[in-house]
Amino acid sequence: MQVNISIKRHNPSAPDNNTYWEDFDLSMHDTASVLDALIKIREDVDGSLSVRCSCRSAICGSCAMRVNGHAKLACNTKLSDVIDADGRVTVEPAGVMPVIKDLVVDQTLFWDKVKQISPWLQPDGPEPEGEYIAPNSAMMDLAGVMNCIMCGACVSDCTVLEIDKDFIGPAALAKAYRFVNDPRDDQTKSRLIELNEKTGIWDCTRCFECVEVCPKGVAPMERIMSLRESAMEQGLDQTVGARHADAFTDSVAHSGWLNELLLPLKTFGMFNLGAMMGLAPIGLRALLRGKMPSIFHRSVPNVHRIRRIVKKIEENE
């Protein structure tokens, strides 16, 4: 199989013009991975190509990078799955984090966020003599997060982190899920209080990128959604995000669809003048373009059936 691999390189030692694209033409085995190609380049063609890698079996988490613009592990990405009809593929370093050299990024930001969530088990009281007793199902649920290999693919492609470096981000929040839901941990509430703050669970925009790019099926976004539910169940419902979620539910439960006029009022608070002033230009533009929702919010036909569904859900919870 002939491939043309285009690599975004960065040489920090060069005086200027030190970021550039370089193409390599290689002849590879049909089942070869992107990492196999990179290793071949650094071993046979250009020894100065820097790339982190070790296990070659998707367990060490070293080789997260962007392939054709999306974060992947190079080792479990087959070339045949990513090359175009002309055998071309592009490889560049992971996003969000600064590049040190070629495909090697500085992961300080990644680990700082992990450290921010106090990522260690915190039980109260004296340890039992033997092991903690815990149901296997709870442990297996946590296994779905413990198999996160901290590769940083989700952080690389997180659309929130791209513009707001303060967001705790998908990997660290998935890690937080593991402690919040660990039956042995006794800091559930205080952890949720912290995660409920700005830059925490409510800053995720649910774009699904982290779910898409995670090579281990950790599905960070779903963990974040679960943390939101846990926070609200713990009575932590006075954040913008929580009120927004409540306003959504209330509106649908009442009229069968969304009352767009009431939503911002309930989310930000009727007397939050600052937020209301901030929304005024949007309202004005909506008005000018004829998109202002009617102030008379009618229920949908047969709304009683929707209310019945809502009631059923509430009963089941």
Partner: peptide
């Protein structure tokens, strides 16, 4: 005790 989950 440190936090390893282990199958049960």
């Amino acid at each position: 005790h440190m936090g390893v989950i282990f199958n049960r």
